Simulated assay, not measured.
Amino acid sequence: MMKQKLLTLLLILLPSILSTQYIEDEQRAFMPEWKTGDILTVFSPNGIYLYKDICNQFDPDDCENHIIKYLPRNTKIIFKEIVNSDLQNYFGINAPMVKVSVDNTLGFVFSGLLSTLPTIPKICNNFQNYLESNYGQIIKTKEENWCISEYGEHCGKTLKSFYNKDIIYATSTSSGINGKDIRTESIINLSKSLHEAFLIALNCSNSEIKNYQFEKFERDAIGWHLESNNPTICEYDKNSDKPLKSAYYQLRFSYNENRQSEITITRNIKYSDNCK
């Protein structure tokens, strides 16, 4: 049952994981650079299992009899070593099994759902929940009004909230083409790793994203992006004159030479009478 729940949650949002430090032939792969003794945190929303032997943890027949204990989200564990270079793939998460210690018990876990990031708060429905829990209160805010073209096409407003360590939380609302409303939520300057971006988004995204499925990451000139593959799902909005709406999501991660990074979830909404 726990494995089924984990599979469902990973289908919710982001089926791909990568650290920009470990791009090999443009394939998505995460090979940890942790050192023996590093303290890691479980970032799987429904936790993971600790195994007594190396096995394919996503094959119930292979691992069912190897479980030592269940590790809830935010469990602290001690990293020991990467046990081999073979990568296990779980919905696009390519990462090896690693040896760890939990409460003086040695075992093996899947590394793709572990991180040295600050822990996930009990309530984390958006990026701001995560930042406020780990980086304190907002230092200052700044509002920006903008238009993409001089003719007033695609105009919007961005509100930026500044935190300690030069971390920024930004939200934007705008009207796009074909009557779409566009909303974005971003964390700026938090991490240079797509692996970490994946884990934050997996744990701290709007709950309505559970209705959507996503496919593989693609890379373009700006960075990595992930598209929802079922944008025609109809949602009901009782506050709108046209209560039917179709929504389409995109996750984008970028990192440049100036060590600036940005994690953004964009929600494109189109209101209509028939959701086409």
Rank of each mutant, 00 (worst) to 15 (best):
Ile148Ala: 10
Cys204His: 04
Asp61Gly: 08
Val83Ala: 06
Thr232Ala: 12
Thr20Leu: 07
Lys80Asn: 11
Cys147Asn: 01
Ser174Leu: 03
Lys276Trp: 12
Ser19Phe: 02
Thr171Asp: 00
Ser246Val: 13
Tyr163Asn: 04
Leu13Ile: 10
Ser161Phe: 01
Ala247Gly: 08
Thr171Asn: 02
Asn256Asp: 11
Tyr163Arg: 07
Phe127Pro: 00
Asn230Phe: 01
Tyr255Asn: 14
Met97Cys: 06
Asp53Val: 09
Ser16Val: 11
His154Phe: 14
Gln88Ile: 02
Ile82Pro: 00
Phe91Thr: 13
Thr116Ser: 04
Cys204Trp: 03
Ile93Pro: 02
Asn239Gln: 14
Ile82Asp: 01
Ile54Met: 14
Leu10Asp: 12
Glu257Ser: 09
Thr41Lys: 14
Ser115Leu: 07
Ile48Tyr: 00
Asp53Met: 06
Pro96Lys: 05
Tyr248Gln: 14
Glu153Val: 13
Gln128Lys: 14
Leu159Ser: 07
Ile265Ala: 03
Ile188Pro: 02
Ser246Thr: 14
Val83Ser: 05
Glu218Lys: 11
Asp59Asn: 13
Lys5Arg: 13
Lys140Pro: 02
Leu50Lys: 09
Asn84Pro: 07
Met31Asn: 00
Pro121Gln: 07
Lys122Gly: 03
Phe127Ala: 02
Phe253Tyr: 15
Asp237His: 13
Lys238Ser: 15
Lys80Asp: 10
Phe91Ile: 15
Leu9Lys: 12
Phe79Met: 03
Arg267Gly: 03
Asp25Ser: 07
Met31Pro: 00
Val42Gln: 09
Gln137Pro: 04
Val100Gln: 04
Lys80Phe: 02
Ser186Val: 02
Gln4Cys: 09
Leu131Cys: 07
Val100Tyr: 01
Leu6His: 07
Cys234Thr: 10
Leu40Thr: 01
Asn203Ser: 08
Ser193Gly: 00
Ile233Cys: 10
Ser44Phe: 04
Asn104Asp: 11
Glu144His: 10
Ser186Ala: 10
Val83Glu: 05
Leu18Glu: 09
Ser240Asp: 13
Thr75Leu: 00
Ile263Leu: 03
His225Asn: 12
Arg259Leu: 15
Gln137Ser: 11
Ser228Val: 08
Asp25Trp: 00
Asp53Leu: 08
Met97Gln: 08
Tyr130Cys: 05
Ser161Val: 03
His66Glu: 15
Ser175Thr: 11
Asn274Asp: 15
Gln250Ala: 10
Asn268Ser: 15
His66Trp: 06
Glu218Arg: 10
Arg73Gly: 03
Gln128Asn: 11
Ser44Tyr: 08
Tyr135Leu: 12
Asp181Tyr: 09
Tyr90Gly: 05
Thr141His: 06
Arg219Gly: 08
Thr173Phe: 11
Trp224Cys: 12
Cys234Asp: 07
Ile182Ser: 01
Leu40Cys: 01
Lys52Asn: 05
Leu190Pro: 00
Glu150Lys: 14
Asp62Pro: 05
Asp62Ser: 15
Arg259Gly: 09
Asn134Cys: 02
Pro231Glu: 12
Thr264Lys: 08
Asn74Leu: 07
Ala197Asn: 05
Arg259His: 14
Leu194Asp: 07
Pro72Arg: 01
Cys234Ile: 14
Lys140Leu: 10
Ile168Tyr: 00
Ser240Trp: 06
Ser174Pro: 01
Lys245Ala: 15
Asp53Gly: 04
Lys157Trp: 05
Ser133Gly: 13
Cys234Ser: 13
Asn104Gly: 03
Leu251His: 08
Ser149Ala: 07
Glu26His: 07
